[in-house]
Amino acid sequence: MHSPTAPAVFTSPIDPGVDALWERRTELTPADGTARDLVVEAVDMLDAGHARVAFVDGATGQVVVDERARRAILLCFRLLEMRQTSAGVFHYHDRLPLKREFPGVRVVPGAVARWGSHHAPGTVLMPSYTNIGAFVDSGTMVDTWATVGSCAQIGKNVHLAGGVGVGGVLEPANAAPVVIEDDAFVGSRSVVVEGARVRRGAKLGAGVLLTASTRVFDAMTGEELPPGEAPEWSVCVGSTRRKSFPGGEFGVPCLLVIKRLPEGGRHDKLLLESLFREHGFAL
């Protein structure tokens, strides 16, 4: 469980003028050139990785959200005009352009990323989608048909397997983004949404559904763990628990921790697949 200690005071690297624009956002239009330039500068910082919507505080383990960054993204939809853009034979009509700079990143044909998302050198994008405000750190693979939602934070050396859906968050203002920490593995067709958190080194089997309110249990002890979080250096699978309703008893999704891994331990895909299959699951 993360420390209850409050994180150190955080100062956003983004111009505080964005906050002033936010207070009068209902008045803004694409004709406000000065406001538009300020917001574009802020989103350019996100695109380059000089700012990010959220990060894990190293001292406390808590997720710190830069609300100014999120406000800048939302202001784009008031200040940017609809424009026709293209990528090869594909044509688009949107307020936000596609990302164009990928230094040190392998981008396979079919991969799409929006301006304002950041991919650190060493990441690999198979045919996939990354939305504005997302941060994908080095050594991570976003596999085929995986989606990284708005403002989601993906750590180093993560594998998002085929068809994984990482949820986005722009509104409401107090909603936390999804955070998937370093060295995690998220199995095929899994869905991680609503500010859920996959902590460092956690491995999720195929088809896991993890939301902020998903209950989490240790299969070896029966202990209930903090909701909405895959624990550090654990192997987890989707399961169900019985819950009574007026109409009867039904199975409700939960997350089951089936094994604890040594901290810093590395497991290649074959060994990980063997572990899941031992318990009747798969990657």
Rank of each mutant, 00 (worst) to 15 (best):
P4G: 07
P4K: 05
T5Y: 00
P16F: 09
G17F: 07
G17T: 07
V18G: 02
W22R: 04
A31I: 00
D32Y: 06
D37A: 15
A51G: 09
D57N: 14
T60A: 09
L75W: 07
L80V: 00
E81Y: 00
R83C: 09
R83W: 01
Q84M: 04
Q84Y: 09
H93N: 13
E101L: 07
P109I: 08
R114N: 07
M126A: 09
P127Q: 10
S128E: 03
T130Q: 02
I132R: 03
M141T: 15
V142E: 01
T147Q: 11
S150P: 02
C151V: 02
C151A: 12
I154D: 04
K156G: 01
V164N: 06
G165P: 00
G167C: 07
G167E: 10
P172C: 03
A175E: 08
G187A: 11
G205V: 11
S213R: 07
S213G: 04
R215N: 03
M220N: 08
T221F: 05
V235R: 05
T240G: 08
T240F: 13
R241M: 09
G247Y: 04
G248N: 08
L255I: 11
K259R: 15
L261W: 01
G265P: 02
L272G: 06
R277Q: 14
H279C: 05
A282E: 13
